[in-house]
């Protein structure tokens, strides 16, 4: 699967244009007119939204005009590499929500370095354990910034 640069340009311009429309829509609900006490709250965002739409349209037209159709944005290999990194990242964040930051990061680091970077399991374990411990010391002890602990650590009395 190959995504051409032009396709990517259009998709991104379409998305940003959509965001611009969303901004305009929301601004209209706040009121974009000139009220009794000066500009209404939607006045400024409305024009910001308009400029986003304008810029997106301009980008799309430029892409069409230049039409560097041969240029590749990403091919199958690219997509797989990025996905192999990004999907575990999403899992990490989901795990954080559920298990707390420390346990989630330890699990993520172990699997990412074992399966992703092809480290030996013992080395992957070391990387995960040392990084997690270092973070615990830095945040909980040195800077006293508490991170989300999650149910497991709380069960063991670590808050």
């Amino acid at each position: 699967m190959v995504i051409s640069r032009n396709a990517a340009e259009f998709v991104v311009a379409f998305v940003t244009g959509g965001l611009g429309a969303l901004v305009c829509y929301s601004a209209l609900q706040n009121g974009v007119a000139w009220g009794a006490s000066g500009p209404e709250p939607g006045y400024f965002p409305f024009y910001v939204g308009c400029l986003i739409i304008l810029g997106s349209a301009g980008t799309a037209v430029q892409a069409l005009w230049r039409s560097g159709a041969a240029e590749v944005f990403a091919d199958g290999h690219n997509i797989r590499t990025v996905a192999a990194f990004f999907v575990p990242l999403v899992v990490l964040v989901a795990l954080c929500q559920w298990l707390g930051l420390y346990i989630a990061m330890a699990l993520y680091l172990f699997f990412a370095t074992w399966l992703g970077a092809k480290l030996r399991p013992f080395n992957a374990f070391l990387v995960a354990a040392i990084t997690t411990a270092a973070n615990f010391v830095i945040f909980e002890i040195l800077f006293t910034v508490p991170l989300l602990k999650g149910p497991v650590l709380e069960y063991f009395g670590i808050y």
């Binding site: 954080c96 990061m105 680091l109 992703g116 990084t131 945040f139 910034v145 991170l147 989300l148």
Partner: peptide, 26 residues
């Protein structure tokens, strides 16, 4: 490939510590 995940974890923690919201991380 080993350093990358560690940086990713640092970014996740950083996003969380801004206001202690998981929403920020998403």
């Amino acid at each position: 490939k080993v350093v990358g995940p560690i940086i990713a974890v640092v970014c996740v923690i950083g996003a969380y510590t801004v206001a202690n919201h998981m929403f920020d991380v998403w």
